[in-house]
Design a protein around this nucleic acid. Structure first.
Lengths: 340, 340
DNA sequence: GCACAAGATGCAAACGTTTTCATACAGAGG
DNA sequence: CCTCTGTATGAAAACGTTTGCATCTTGTGC
């Protein structure tokens, strides 16, 4: 059941069969019909490897993520896959489990021709590059998402983390909060630095001095959110609002606060970032910054498709809109908070 | 940079290079070293397509899931991917978004040779089969997971849903509950039927009559859990405990109960199934049945590997242990509940 | 010293496509 | 009637591996 059989079946040459399937406009209408008929009847599917070997195109893309188990990543990859399939590409899953060696392993797939392009949601470029050559020329079709790698000219897509964090902080300020803590994400994540910038911008513009104790380390995990909250509660001057740089940490914070008997948001306000599905289902429901996961995934894939089709996209940075979602975990600053 | 170049570089034939890479034991130690050196220095990676074309092996497996966005699926696929990579396989992601046409699309990948095997987490076999022939002979290397397709001899892996649901129900019974409602999952999911069986078994054994009104339809989504809970609250004789067939629905139920001002578990107990990450983070934390996602994924992959290596696994059904996780959403039956 | 086995290696033919180049034919313009 | 252009097809050469078979070498037992 190779292309030769179809050729024989329809009385033409393999070349014509191939053309019928890939460039129908090159073949006469009647011939086309004959071939199509034979294809249908035999259920012939071109062998991908024969084709790939010849064309040097795999029809695969690989998406590299630190942990597909996180809502945010799962949502994004789902959109990617949908968009990819629409354009005839299959997606190879690359969950790095946080290991750099794995990042390299997946990067290798595109080097070895197993994938035509790569979607990177990790904060590094896992490629060996010659520092003397222009970087971009050495990279395969690639787009960086979320943890956007700041390389001039690199295709990137994400929400504006800085503006998002700033909007979050400004919202807390608008509620009257002045002592606003920030729980940071993974220290090697660009998104973390960006969000921190946004926080600082808002505080600066409000003319507020930030007590360094209000800035506490985390790593985007729920546990780190809990630990951070514990630390904040021990401060002499407790913050009246806590802005966690993602929802998981905010959920951790919520739990610690409950445990210590605090009322939210009466005693203390909590904000997240991401708007994962469970944010709305918490008690109290979490105020947060929404990320349009589907749009991110789709945009990333589209940017990659441009490159795969040989066009260098005009806009190599796609910035998607975030949205402030006000729920019940934030409220006006408590009175004693003001007066203290 | 083909195999020929390496051959030239190391002064041997392409055949020997190939053997060095794939069956080192066939080649003399010294030769092996020479070749390896050339490979290292040139950074040569065998072209997968040349190889695949010849061997008819893709080195890929495809995993088909209804929605990778769900914790349970994401956790499983992560384990699969890890195990697959360990054995040199790459995984193609197949998120069906619930569409049967997509299931078929992914099934086609293994038919067209793009994947060597398939891991199915959907409740259907998306293959065209000849009903006169023995079914198993017509299927590619395949294992069915979670929504286990009940075909004699098919490789399957899952927890014992029936026993799990039964344990859940028995636990509620042990707390003194008698009016125990069940919120069902997707009606076409085998897991749903199995869990329902378990529920009935426990109720029967306790000698309790099940009021049909206590059995309410759902589809494993949070929304359906909410709707179901609303329905249950409208009953003249309200249940004192609600067993939702997954955590998402239980979380929905929890939210509705909060909304109506019920105290959990004082007024009403709620149980889930799955033990997703957020179950422990709910207020109150959700009592549930734990599924060992990692083990499920690994077992499924191992079962597939057996088949890919030409061995028919001796045990074609792997049943993994569940665990009853008691948290705060369940408690003794309220007194008025007993007396009513 | 000979036959034979075993161990290494090379030759060359696949595997199933795509695509360049050449050919064939038909119609148009002179 | 001849040439020219354009359209439709086919022949054949890749693409990069793997592997059956043949060959050559070396060692072993008699």
């Amino acid at each position: 059941m190779g292309i030769k059989d179809i050729a024989a079946l329809s009385g033409v040459s393999p070349a014509t069969v191939s053309r019928t399937l890939r460039n129908p406009e090159l073949v006469n209408k009647d011939t086309r019909k004959k071939v199509m008929k034979a294809v249908k009847e035999s259920g012939y599917r071109p062998n991908r490897f024969g084709s790939s070997l010849r064309t040097r195109q795999s029809g695969n893309i690989v998406v590299v993520m630190p942990d597909i188990t996180h809502q945010v990543n799962a949502g994004i990859i789902r959109a990617i896959e949908s968009e990819a399939q629409k354009h005839g590409y299959s997606v190879l899953l690359g969950d790095t489990q946080g290991l750099i060696e794995r990042e390299r392993h997946y990067a290798d797939m595109v080097n070895s021709g197993q994938a035509d392009g790569i979607l990177l949601f990790t904060p590094r470029l896992p490629f060996d590059v010659d520092p003397d050559q222009p970087l971009l020329k050495q990279l395969p079709p690639l787009v960086s998402g979320n943890e956007t790698i700041p390389v001039e000219g690199l295709c990137r897509v994400s929400v504006n983390n800085t503006a998002g964090a700033r909007a979050a902080t400004e919202y807390l300020l608008s509620l009257g909060h002045r002592r606003i803590a920030a729980v940071l994400g993974a220290s090697d994540a660009p998104s973390n630095q960006e969000r921190l910038d946004g926080y600082h911008q808002a505080m600066d513009e409000a003319g507020l001095q930030v007590d360094p104790q209000w800035i506490v380390a985390g790593d985007y995990s729920t546990d780190s959110g809990m630990a951070a909250m514990e630390k904040l509660l021990k401060l002499r001057q407790r913050p009246t609002a806590v802005f966690c740089f993602n929802d998981d940490m905010a959920i951790g914070a919520l739990n610690v606060l409950h445990q210590y008997g605090f009322a939210i948001p009466q005693d203390i306000s909590v904000m997240g970032f991401d708007d994962i599905r469970y944010a709305a289902l918490m008690r109290p429901a979490l105020t947060t910054i929404h990320q349009p996961l589907e749009d991110i995934g789709r945009a990333a894939m589209q940017l990659l498709l441009e490159q795969l089709n040989g066009r260098q996209p005009k806009n190599n940075y796609v910035e998607l809109p975030f949205e402030l979602i006000v729920r019940q975990s934030t409220g006006p600053v408590p009175l004693q908070g003001e007066s203290e």
